[in-house]
Design a binder for these strands. Structure first.
Lengths: 177, 177
DNA sequence: GCTAAACTGTGAAGCTGTAGACGGGTCAAG
DNA sequence: CTTGACCCGTCTACAGCTTCACAGTTTAGC
């Protein structure tokens, strides 16, 4: 049995957070003491552990509630959706970086274009000693390990959706065979 | 002269947002019609454009207010700080991806598409036949051609500001000599 | 000129997830 | 019996809006 602050500390949370979870019914203590103190059982602790890990993964309270309610069934979808959302957020942040870097350039009198394009990229790899075959192989690896990231990367070079898909198809094909 | 909803649509915002900006004094219309309707001038529009681009860059309202107040002076620091913060956020999101990917693996044992990290990147280049020296050379080229993009790219791999600067210094040094 | 829709205004409350403060009750040790 | 460390419930605050409620204004079509 745990008291509220005790349990909160165990997970690096504040008392307020557990009070809040109680109020919204996400985690309600399984009992109360005579004086009305919340008593959290070991089961409550486990539930909180689950909640915490979902929170750390950035899931919203409602999503977590659904996950816990449906007891592990269909949770995969929620997780995949969150993964998708994270990918999106990261791309947004990267766009922000571009924007800000652009502002710095404007102010500093602009030393160079920050966004690199396809040709520049190829030139750099070639300057580093890569040939056609090596680049092919690199695409194949990229596609195999992180297809989403591969796609985003291609787009970031200014390659259009069509061509990106083409490149990915070729890479995937090479991997399959 | 623009009416409130008109201006809002122009920037993909809602009327409420402009009402809010007015209330907090971030963007106040330069006039009112006889009936009391807000009239936004072209100058107001420009100001809003600036605000929007800062917002898109993820800056907070207060930061923007300060930027607009001090009229371009000292804004570089704010921007650099935001860049730093973005790098941090991206790393957090990547950690979340790892966590979620882990959950899925436990449940499904599946492979997944997530943003790439430093090690994955190195592995991919190596798989494509690059060795240490080639990677060095590639960094040098990257730094020479597009230092800002180089920096953003390093951060996107989850490398922290410190290490990124170190890598860039090394690359720049090699180029200088 | 009339009507209906689409706009405008103001002000207040709500949202998320959490932190912290408040005034007061409870409990164990010394 | 006091002291200090707990606990209670309730309230406020944060960002950056959105939504609501209610009333006045403009505009288009008939």
């Amino acid at each position: 049995m745990y008291r509220i602050t005790q349990l909160a500390r165990l997970f690096g949370l504040s008392r307020s957070t557990l009070l809040y979870y109680d109020r919204i019914g996400l985690l309600q203590p399984s009992g109360r003491s005579e004086a009305g103190y919340r008593c959290y059982s070991t089961a409550d602790k486990e539930r909180l552990a689950t909640i915490c890990s979902y929170r750390q993964a950035g899931l919203g309270i409602e999503a977590i509630r659904r996950l816990l309610a449906t007891a592990e069934a269909g949770s995969e979808l929620v997780i995949r959706q969150r993964l998708e959302a994270i990918g999106c957020e990261i791309r947004n942040l990267q766009a922000q970086q571009q924007l800000l870097a652009g502002m710095l350039n404007l102010q500093a009198g602009g030393e160079l274009a920050i966004a690199i394009d396809k040709q520049t990229w190829i030139d750099m790899l070639r300057a580093a000693g890569m040939d056609e075959a090596a680049m092919q192989q690199w695409h194949v690896e990229f596609e195999r390990r992180a297809p989403q990231a591969h796609h985003a990367f291609l787009l970031s070079l200014g390659i259009d959706e069509q061509e990106a898909l083409l490149i990915r198809d070729l890479s995937a094909g090479q991997w399959a065979n």
